[in-house]
Simulated assay, not measured.
Amino acid sequence: MNEKFDFLPLGSIVVVNGGIKKFVIVARALQVNINGSKQFFDYAACTYPEGINGDRLMYFQHTDISKVVFKGYVDDDEIMMCENIFNAMKKVDIERANVEELKRSMVN
Score class of each variant (00 low, 15 high):
Met1Asn: 09
Asn2His: 05
Asn2Tyr: 08
Asn2Gly: 15
Lys4Pro: 00
Asp6Ser: 10
Asp6Leu: 06
Phe7Arg: 11
Leu8Asn: 09
Leu8Pro: 01
Leu10Val: 10
Leu10Pro: 03
Gly11Met: 02
Gly11Phe: 01
Gly11Tyr: 02
Gly11Asn: 04
Gly11Val: 04
Ile13Ser: 03
Ile13His: 07
Val14His: 06
Val16Arg: 12
Asn17Ser: 14
Gly18Tyr: 00
Ile20Thr: 11
Ile20Met: 09
Ile20Glu: 14
Ile20Val: 13
Lys21Trp: 03
Lys22Cys: 13
Val26Leu: 12
Ala27Phe: 07
Arg28Pro: 00
Ala29Pro: 02
Gln31Phe: 11
Gln31Lys: 15
Val32Glu: 06
Asn33Glu: 13
Ile34Pro: 05
Ile34Lys: 00
Asn35Gln: 12
Asn35Ile: 10
Gly36Cys: 08
Ser37Gln: 13
Ser37Ile: 10
Ser37Glu: 15
Lys38Ser: 12
Gln39Ile: 00
Gln39Phe: 01
Phe40Arg: 14
Phe40Glu: 06
Asp42Asn: 13
Ala45Trp: 00
Ala45Val: 03
Cys46Glu: 12
Thr47Ala: 07
Pro49Gln: 01
Glu50Tyr: 12
Gly51Pro: 10
Gly51Ser: 10
Gly51Tyr: 08
Ile52Met: 14
Ile52His: 03
Gly54Val: 07
Gly54Lys: 06
Gly54Asp: 12
Asp55Phe: 11
Arg56Ser: 10
Leu57Cys: 11
Tyr59Asp: 04
Tyr59Asn: 04
His62Lys: 04
His62Tyr: 11
Thr63Gln: 08
Thr63Ile: 09
Asp64Asn: 13
Asp64Trp: 09
Ile65Gly: 02
Ile65Tyr: 08
Ile65Ala: 08
Lys67Pro: 00
Val68Pro: 04
Val69Arg: 01
Phe70Cys: 04
Phe70His: 12
Gly72Glu: 07
Tyr73Lys: 12
Tyr73Met: 08
Val74Gly: 01
Asp75Pro: 05
Asp75Phe: 04
Asp75Trp: 03
Asp76Arg: 06
Asp77Val: 06
Glu78Leu: 00
Met80Ile: 14
Met81Tyr: 13
Met81Val: 13
Met81Phe: 12
Cys82Ile: 14
Glu83Ala: 13
Phe86Arg: 06
Phe86Val: 02
Asn87Lys: 15
Asn87Tyr: 10
Asn87Asp: 15
Ala88Gly: 11
Met89Glu: 08
Met89Asp: 09
Lys90Ala: 10
Val92Asp: 11
Asp93His: 11
Glu95Pro: 00
Glu95Phe: 01
Arg96Tyr: 06
Arg96Pro: 08
Ala97Tyr: 05
Ala97Trp: 02
Asn98Asp: 15
Val99Met: 05
Val99Lys: 12
Glu100Phe: 13
Glu101Arg: 11
Glu101Tyr: 05
Glu101Ser: 11
Leu102Asp: 01
Leu102Ser: 05
Lys103Ala: 09
Ser105Glu: 03
Ser105Thr: 08
Met106Ala: 13
Met106Gly: 11
Met106Arg: 15
Val107Lys: 04
Asn108Asp: 06
